[in-house]
Amino acid sequence: MKLSPTLALLFVFYPSLLYAQAAKEPKVSFEDVLKARYESWTKDLPTGKITADRVNSLVNNPRIHGDDAAAVAALHLYFRAQNNVTSVEESALLQTSKIMDSDERRDQLTKPVNLEQAFSRYRKHIQNAPKELFAKDAPKREGISQGRLGDCFVIAPIGIFVTQHPNRLKGMIDQIIDGSCLVNFPGVKPVRVPKLTEVQIALGSSAGEQGLWLNMMEEACAMELRTLTGKKSAVAMDLISSGGTTAKIIQMLTGHSVESTHLQPADTKERAKVEAEVRRVLTAVHKDKIIACATTSHTKKEDATPGIATGHAYGIVDYNTATDMVTLWNPWGNKLEPKGPDGIKFGYSTVSGVFSVPLKDFLKLYETLLNQTNKPLPKK
Rank of each mutant, 00 (worst) to 15 (best):
I158S: 07
I316Y: 04
M172H: 01
R226L: 15
Q127V: 13
D267Q: 10
E89L: 07
R80H: 03
Q200I: 14
R280K: 15
A304K: 12
A304P: 03
P378G: 05
T110R: 11
A73Q: 00
S145K: 14
W213M: 01
T305R: 07
G179Y: 09
Q146V: 01
T350A: 08
K49V: 04
K379C: 06
A313C: 02
K289E: 07
V354Q: 07
K111T: 11
G150H: 06
P62M: 05
G343V: 03
T229Q: 12
V258Q: 08
N56K: 13
M223K: 13
S205F: 00
D103L: 07
L115H: 07
W332N: 07
I316E: 04
A92S: 14
T261G: 02
K43T: 12
D318S: 02
T283A: 09
S16F: 10
D53L: 02
W329V: 15
D178F: 06
D288I: 01
V199I: 02
T283H: 08
L363S: 07
P166E: 00
S120M: 11
D32H: 15
K43H: 14
H256P: 06
F13V: 02
Q146R: 04
A247W: 06
S180G: 11
A309V: 11
W213T: 04
L7D: 00
P157V: 07
W332P: 03
R123L: 15
E270P: 00
D267P: 03
K140F: 01
A156C: 03
T295Q: 14
W329D: 11
E104Q: 11
I50M: 04
E277G: 12
E132V: 13
A266I: 03
L115C: 08
A276S: 10
E337C: 09
G255W: 01
G159M: 06
K379Y: 03
M172K: 00
Q127G: 10
I158Q: 04
P265H: 05
G211A: 04
D178Q: 03
H298W: 13
D151P: 10
I250Y: 06
L328T: 11
D178R: 02
S91T: 03
D361K: 02
T295F: 14
Q251C: 12
D68A: 08
A36D: 12
G187E: 09
K232F: 13
I99R: 09
P358N: 14
K301R: 15
D53G: 01
T51G: 09
L34R: 01
A8N: 07
E259T: 13
E132G: 10
S257T: 13
L75A: 08
V12A: 10
A234P: 12
V183E: 06
H312E: 07
N320D: 15
N374P: 10
L10D: 05
K300Q: 12
L228K: 15
P338R: 05
I99M: 11
V193R: 03
R54F: 00
I99G: 03
F362N: 07
R271G: 00
G243T: 03
M172L: 04
M1G: 13
P341Q: 12
A294C: 08
T47P: 05
P358S: 13
N83H: 12
L359R: 06
I250D: 05
P112D: 10
S102T: 12
P130H: 02
I316G: 04
K360D: 11
